[in-house]
Amino acid sequence: MTDFHADSGQAFLPPWFQGIRRIADVMTLVLNVIGTLLILAVMVLVNADVIGRVAFNTPVSGVPEIVSMSIVAIVFLQVAQAFRKGRLTRTDAVLDYIQKRAPRLRSLLEFIFTLAAIALIWQLFAASEPLFVKAWVRGTYEGTVGDFTAPIWPVKLIILIGCAALLVQLVLHAITSLFALTSKKGTSL
């Protein structure tokens, strides 16, 4: 199957673009690693809660709140990398069919799809920004006073960062499909 995503041979791309892409990919990877470490942290936390409760009669306060905020962070930290690695679900039967008969049409379709995705994630980013500002300004928190509280704004910020990283990857993807569309060897993608 043709792979428009990273890590496949894409010799038709000019060096300057490959340079930009490498930088973007490193940033995406950093977010991915932070998200990965967060999963580990959640595991340790839940274990500490259970062991604390069973063995020492001292559960860790706020575990449900921390876990429910962490999962959102985990997802948005990694969604750009998931896209880059081609993990977002799609059906490829029609695309493969088109690829065999009209590879340029395939590139065009890919370009249009990616533009639509860019518009959507831009909407998501723009509408999520006020939610972050609100959480920051009002200092909203999860949990209960007297037991455990944690601010909400870091999660709302991570949603923005994750959308931005996904946007960068989508734009790179759109440009890649545009190069494929206009390249003389477009058929050999």
Partner: peptide
């Protein structure tokens, strides 16, 4: 580490869906 990274990517893809 590979298990962790993979878990993250699958979680992200599924949760996004």
């Amino acid at each position: 580490w590979e298990v962790l990274t993979d878990t993250g990517l699958i979680t992200a893809a599924i949760s996004f869906l």
